[in-house]
């Protein structure tokens, strides 16, 4: 197996996910198949390509600096699982 449990755990950490030990095994199997599948791209023989058909925006096409009304506070926090005084609330964060 190319991608071992340690690597899977690293990816889970980056993803803010966690699996039980038994689930980890099937996940690792699936993940290895998928990784193998995308491996062809890594090995592809493609020389440097020109920017070609890529779209770019000009500065004048950007949004003008004009104020538009904000959303009411009550709607901003309407879907929050926990809120207080118009704020989203999370467990105490220690820096």
């Amino acid at each position: 197996m190319k991608i071992d449990f340690e690597e899977i755990k690293r990816l889970e950490k980056l993803s803010a996910l966690s699996s039980s030990e038994e689930k980890l095994k099937s996940l690792a199997e699936d993940f290895n198949k998928i990784a193998e599948f995308v491996e062809q791209v890594k090995n592809a023989d493609i020389e440097q390509t020109d920017i070609g058909y890529q779209r770019v925006l000009k500065i004048d096409e950007l949004r003008a600096d004009e104020v538009v009304p904000s959303m009411p506070q009550s709607e901003i926090v309407s879907n929050a699982p926990e809120k207080e005084d118009g704020c989203f609330v999370v467990p105490k964060v220690v820096e």
Binding site: L11, L14, S15, L17, L27, D30, F31, I34, A35, V38
Partner: peptide, 19 residues
């Protein structure tokens, strides 16, 4: 996130982080 996302979504999130 672990409780909220289904398996395929989790696999793809992890693949995204891998690449």
């Amino acid at each position: 996130r672990t409780a909220g996302f289904g398996d395929e979504v989790k696999r793809r999130i992890m693949l995204g982080n891998y690449v």
